[in-house]
Design a protein around this nucleic acid. Structure first.
Lengths: 213, 213
DNA sequence: TTGACAACATACCCGGTAGTATGTTCATCA
DNA sequence: TGATGAACATACTACCGGGTATGTTGTCAA
């Protein structure tokens, strides 16, 4: 009955709660979402949620954590490839965008979590819990940033300020969480085609030398 | 005592409320911001706000409207220039980005307003009020999109799907509302330099033929 | 078979917040 | 000058939503 996910176990009931919570948070945002909303979507009551989570922010944090776990897993096989930096970046960016589209609920929560932290809209207790998650997210971002730097050193990219550029690129890659709306009968190929266009836009913005094969 | 702004008059008391509301909404988001928060920032009480606005969503809508008014004013002088589309786009994009940085409070509200509409997180009454604003924002976006199409026809740009591309570009140009943080002693030149980098990134993403002079 | 505990549901409390109803003050104009 | 209304402040209500305290049911181990 227990499914291994990452380092901690995640029973199926918790997984259902996470999925429902992610959807609610995506549709209404953190503060506009009530615990009862999440419970209603589950066809359950508050009791179920508070049996697994001690607070609303705790639930939110776990959705955040789960979303980041997905991201790390998605890029992990590509991180230590022996290809050139520019090529590693391209492939990682691609799977990242696919993640943004296919796991939209969780990625929206990650986004809002970062926002909440930037705005300081967290209580002192929350900040310690959030610190780990924000750190995880920052390191994830750094993986991409470091590759950008390496690719520029290789002469495969040309851009101005590294920090600003990474922000621009990351927003571009993340943007589907805002404007993508799932079509009935969308194929995997359709999604990959959109991802390809996004990555292509980003790579041109990064001043790459070569087009898409 | 009345300052003409656009088509309707805006007395200074209302302007102060708008400014305070924009800051609060930027820092905490719509639903996490209480009317008392806005009043507190004004050094006043609810009474003052409810004297001018009939509801919280009404206040929010007016901040939205004011933000869009600023945007239209900023690009107006450039819209009907006789330059080529690519050049008009570049200049309009530049002033747009400067707006995003210098009027960050209001632009965040515009963003959240669009978000709320996309998520359908509005009551039926609100939707009619919002409809105008969303329409205004859509037409604003179309101004840029049409220029992209024209520039592509001119052979000055090269990109894939027009709709997706415009989304990517617009997110890129808007992105400072998320990551820009005002520095003590920031100069106008500093801001313009950042805007230049953003526009440069976007133009490369759009497959332009020529670099920045 | 029973008792102990996990996994919920039910019922309740209470603080915060949108909105309202009612003062209070000051300027303007007949 | 006094009456009227704009521009607020004060005081209050009603409700929603986070959190808790307690009840109920099924399961499993001894």
């Amino acid at each position: 009955m227990a499914l291994g996910v990452g380092e901690h176990m995640l029973d199926s009931s918790r997984a259902d709660i996470l999925e429902a919570a992610a959807h609610c948070f995506m549709e209404r945002g953190y503060s506009a979402t009530s615990i009862d909303d999440v419970a209603r979507r589950l066809g359950a009551t508050k009791g179920r949620i508070y049996h697994h989570y001690s607070s609303k922010s705790d639930l939110f944090a776990d959705v955040f954590r789960f979303g980041m776990e997905m991201n790390y897993k998605a890029i992990e096989p590509l991180r230590h490839s022996r290809e050139k930096a520019v090529e590693r970046w391209r492939k990682m960016a691609f799977v990242h965008v696919v993640q943004m589209i296919t796991k939209r609920q969780f990625q929206r929560v990650v986004w809002e979590g970062v926002e909440m932290h930037l705005r300081g809209a967290t209580t002192p207790e929350q900040r310690t819990v959030f610190a780990d998650l924000i750190g995880s997210r920052a390191r994830y971002s750094d993986v991409f940033r470091d590759l950008l730097a390496e690719a520029r050193d290789d002469g495969d990219m040309a851009f101005g300020n590294l920090g600003i550029t990474n922000q621009l690129v990351f927003i571009t890659l993340n943007s589907p969480i805002f404007w993508y709306s799932p079509r009935a009968g969308e194929t995997e190929g359709y999604i990959r085609e959109i991802a390809r266009q996004i990555v292509s836009f980003a790579m041109h913005g990064l001043g790459m030398k070569e087009g898409n094969p």
